[in-house]
């Protein structure tokens, strides 16, 4: 079973927090490949330690832009941050995607993550994923 992600986009996971964690944990970092399955692509997973400040977390994200990964898994890198710091860290994800990577984000505040998202996947309690139209969420920004 594979998860297809658009290159150049930030995709945010929605749904129950526990299920989102399970989805991220279940992704096989060694299985990245192009959509036709003919070529392996690198996967990089980014998480943060509890004592990492906002600057260290942003620096870690910026370092991904220099790395050869095509799929970037952002695993709750804003945990423990204030809302402004969380927004700053999430904003740093956009250039990672536009640099030619597929970025999948699980965040403690998925609504905040949607501010930088191009797309969203909703995980149901059984762990099944379905695409969520961001057009349906425009009211969040109004």
């Amino acid at each position: 079973m594979g998860l297809r992600l658009p290159v150049g986009d930030v995709t945010v996971l929605l749904g129950p927090a526990a299920v989102r964690r399970q989805v991220m944990a279940a992704l096989d970092d060694d299985s990245g490949r192009c959509a036709s399955g003919h070529s392996a692509v690198r996967v990089q997973r980014l998480a943060a330690a509890a004592d990492d400040d906002v600057h260290r977390r942003i620096a870690a994200i910026e370092a991904v832009r220099e790395a050869p990964a095509t799929i970037v898994l952002i695993d709750r890198v804003t945990d423990g941050l204030t809302a402004p710091d969380r927004r700053a860290v999430l904003a740093a994800l956009r250039p990672v995607a536009t640099g030619g990577r597929a970025v999948l984000v699980d965040d403690d505040d998925p609504v905040a993550a949607l501010a930088v998202a191009d797309g969203a996947l909703r995980a149901d309690p059984a762990g099944r994923l379905s695409a969520e139209s961001l057009g349906d969420l425009d009211y969040l920004g109004s």
Binding site: M1, L5, L27, S31, G32, V41
Partner: peptide, 20 residues
């Protein structure tokens, strides 16, 4: 679409599998 890589594959999408 975007084409790239060592054998000119369609690079618009990428895939990752779930462990199972």
């Amino acid at each position: 679409i975007t084409v790239g890589g060592d054998h000119a594959h369609c690079g618009t999408f990428v895939e990752i599998s779930f462990r199972g």
